[in-house]
């Protein structure tokens, strides 16, 4: 049934797009403090491009991995900015991870989080503590691995992922940026949350709502 897993993914992107767009102003304001005041705009633009591209395809005849590939190229061509290549690479790596098993099982979900994180890290050459989106994604990926290791259920796994991401994002406040535009501010970046980490939390929370809700398997998402 590629259709059902594909529908879930498409629904996930819709949800991310809506929630990012709702928080557009807050993200832009965060970027205004230590960057160039466009993070809400670029993220919203990117995910809106993804959902409008996904709206054009026949979900019943598309594999989940293909959804991620489509998302990668739509996001990349819409955004530019740092986030374009970072999330495009993340989605490509997620697609590669899903190709082995297109069911979107709990293990696949954890693998997606890990693959996305690896993609962001590969493309941006960043690491934990650089005050970037990685400060949300790396703890999230670790939490996913941990949950898989102790065989946790969907809702437990996803809460631990989102909780880790939130803690990580909050921690960016006390970091001095070492990557991205904020790096040029030096000490002046202290005290502000990294916008990319903040949007990562929104994305992961939308993923949680997609995958961890009790009846999520049956749910039909608007395309």
């Amino acid at each position: 049934m590629p259709g059902s897993a594909t529908r879930r993914l498409s629904g996930m992107f819709n949800r991310i797009s809506n929630e990012i767009t709702e928080e557009k102003d807050r993200l832009t304001a965060l970027d205004g403090a230590i960057g160039d005041a466009d993070h809400g705009i670029t993220m919203s633009l990117g995910f809106m491009a993804v959902t409008s591209e996904l709206a054009r395809i026949d979900l019943d005849h598309t594999l989940p991995s293909a959804v991620f590939r489509i998302a990668a190229s739509a996001f990349l061509n819409a955004v530019g900015a740092s986030t374009g290549p970072l999330y495009a690479t993340a989605f490509l790596r997620a697609a590669q991870a899903l190709e082995k098993d297109e069911r979107l099982s709990l293990a696949d979900q954890a693998a997606v989080v890990e693959a996305m994180t690896a993609g962001i890290q590969q493309r941006g050459k960043g690491q934990l503590g650089d005050k970037t989106m990685l400060d949300a994604w790396i703890p999230a990926a670790d939490a996913a691995m941990g949950a898989r290791a102790r065989d946790a259920g969907a809702s437990e796994m996803w809460s631990s992922i989102v909780e880790a991401a939130e803690t990580g994002a909050n921690a960016t406040r006390s970091m001095v940026a070492a990557r991205g535009r904020a790096a040029r501010l030096g000490e002046r970046s202290l005290g502000h949350m990294d916008p990319g980490a903040a949007s990562a939390v929104i994305i992961l929370r939308a993923m949680m709502k997609t995958f961890a809700s009790e009846n999520s398997r049956e749910q039909v998402f608007p395309s």
């Binding site: 160039d36 466009d38 061509n77 955004v79 900015a81 740092s82």
Partner: peptide, 11 residues
């Protein structure tokens, strides 16, 4: 040329 203050895209 990209969006305002934003890199152009790879395409």
């Amino acid at each position: 040329t990209g969006h305002i203050f934003t890199s152009p895209t790879p395409d």
